[in-house]
Amino acid sequence: MTTLYGSSKSRAARSLWALEELGVKYDHVPVAPAEAKSADNLKRNPNGHVPVLEDDGIVVWESMAINLYLAEKYGKNSLWPSDLAGHAAAYKWSFFGMTEAEPHLMSILRNRVMNPPDKRDENAALAAVEALKAPFKVLDQSLQGREYLLGNSFTIADLNVASVLSWAAMIRLDQSATPTAQAWLQKCLGREANAKVRKLP
């Protein structure tokens, strides 16, 4: 039995996307972020966050950890690379998304969308926009001459990075300086499995 707790309007979306890509049969319990510190969810994740995966008695939290686990267990012939170098690349790019891009994207989201108007800091948002130029350039250069991050096949590395950068479209971030990365991102986000997840609660 595989169950994913978390709303598609949260980081759980990337784990739902992975489950859909992998064709794993699962139950989805749409726990909203505001409900993540409920007594029931704290039993699953003592940090009080979503998503949480329960898979045949194994409990995993942190969305990137969930996705890497799912890909390794279920994606041997699809999302999971076949060799150790590929595994290293999947880890590298997944952590790149979390450390180099997500904090800046979250700063823009908080200061332009999520926070009440009187709690927004446009200078912080502008600094985050500037800070994102470097990781987008790294991504753009790495995609030159290849379809996806690890070569010609879509892998968990692409899914994880694209799921982070999906917020760039939400905040209408100008990506014109990195057209290769922009085209790659739209290709990844346009996949059928991701489109299905976006319709989930």
Rank of each mutant, 00 (worst) to 15 (best):
I58K: 14
L165F: 15
V138H: 02
I171Y: 10
L16S: 11
W184V: 03
H28R: 05
G97F: 06
V161A: 09
P116W: 02
L143K: 03
Y5K: 00
A131E: 03
S38I: 02
L105G: 00
L70G: 04
R11K: 05
E62G: 14
A89F: 12
L109W: 06
A34F: 13
V138D: 10
P117E: 06
G57W: 09
K119T: 11
T99I: 15
A181K: 00
P46R: 12
M114R: 14
K25G: 09
A90G: 04
G145K: 05
K119G: 02
D56L: 08
L68A: 04
P135S: 14
R44Q: 15
P103Y: 04
A127Y: 01
K133V: 07
L4V: 15
A193L: 04
K9M: 11
P81E: 03
V29Q: 10
F136Y: 01
A124I: 05
H104Y: 05
N41I: 08
G6T: 10
G6F: 00
D118N: 15
N77F: 11
G48E: 11
G57P: 03
A128C: 12
A12D: 13
L16A: 09
P201Q: 10
Y69W: 11
E35D: 07
L79Q: 00
S153T: 15
N152V: 08
D158P: 05
A90T: 02
S7R: 13
M170S: 14
F136H: 12
K9P: 13
Y5N: 15
G86P: 01
R120P: 02
V138I: 13
A34T: 04
D140G: 09
Y5L: 15
P81F: 10
K73Q: 08
W61I: 03
W80Q: 02
Q144T: 12
R14N: 09
P103A: 01
Y74D: 05
V129N: 09
L16H: 10
G86V: 07
W93A: 10
G190T: 07
M106A: 10
A89L: 14
E122L: 08
A71N: 01
R120Q: 03
S78C: 07
T178F: 10
Y148Q: 08
E192Q: 11
P33D: 14
M106F: 07
A162I: 02
A128L: 00
K92T: 08
H87E: 06
L139P: 06
K196T: 08
V52C: 02
L189C: 09
F136L: 02
V161G: 07
S78I: 07
S107V: 14
D121L: 04
V29D: 04
N67V: 13
K73A: 12
P81G: 03
A181V: 00
E192W: 11
L42N: 12
D121T: 11
V52G: 01
A65N: 06
K137Q: 06
L84R: 06
S176M: 00
R112N: 05
